[in-house]
Design a binder for these strands. Sequence first.
DNA 1: CGGTATCCCAGTTGATACTG
DNA 2: CAGTATCAACTGGGATACCG
Lengths: 142, 142
Amino acid sequence: MQSGTHTHVPSMVSAALPDPVPAEEYERCPVTDVLHRVGDKWSILIVVLLGKRPHRYNELHRGIATISQRMLTRTLRALEADGLVHREVFPTNPPSVEYRLTPLGRSLLTPLSALADWAVAHHPEIEAARAEHLPVQNEPRQ
Amino acid sequence: MQSGTHTHVPSMVSAALPDPVPAEEYERCPVTDVLHRVGDKWSILIVVLLGKRPHRYNELHRGIATISQRMLTRTLRALEADGLVHREVFPTNPPSVEYRLTPLGRSLLTPLSALADWAVAHHPEIEAARAEHLPVQNEPRQ
DNA sequence: CGGTATCCCAGTTGATACTG
DNA sequence: CAGTATCAACTGGGATACCG
């Protein structure tokens, strides 16, 4: 279940990061920046849900089950600020607000799916590795 | 400047996440799990550096510039526990320790590069979107 | 319905000092 | 060289209550 179409060393990952990484380079590294955004507790989940279809606020709230209103709002605001999600208010009564992915947000689904596929495929190996390292967790290293 | 080869909805991202996401599903989601690991402050940076070639401890320390010894060690231990990085001690004097990616770690470089390419390509759009949303940052929403 | 405003805790990160 | 130990600071996230 591996691609096989390209097994060579990735392109821009290395290119974006010069060998000695100075402090300034790190701060503005796009890769790190994006990973920090998408790597928080709820962003990917929301992006994936919105990838299926637009959702209203409480629809997302019910959809995720364990997220607090505070974090749902904060995460949506952050995604909106980054231009990944569009928020539209319909002046109905009661008011309704719809969230949907922007074209930029939809374009993120593609590389995200590559990582998701990797995660699904290799999660057993990771779990196995963790299980092996647990026994020596608190041992001093030689 | 988009791929065009596949504009459909990604495969396993949706598949791994059923529409109403119950609490238990979230906890064990491989995608979220991997993203949390790789999404921390230093992991990707280290993985990318080790993707170029093996590095010794202080070589990484000098290479990254702003990382503390504590966080370098902790991040390396975490990557090692997940089976992404291999640590080898050479009994020289003074001692030397070499870190390199495992095959699993190297396989992560491929999907990571897809995300990295996306990040590099679309970072300007993200920055632009942020710049537009900053002025209304503290305004109450209608 | 779709949010804000507070308060608070747990976990993450950093600074500094010390060691086999 | 390759780390550990300790403490302090910062931040993400949750609980609860309230609002237009």
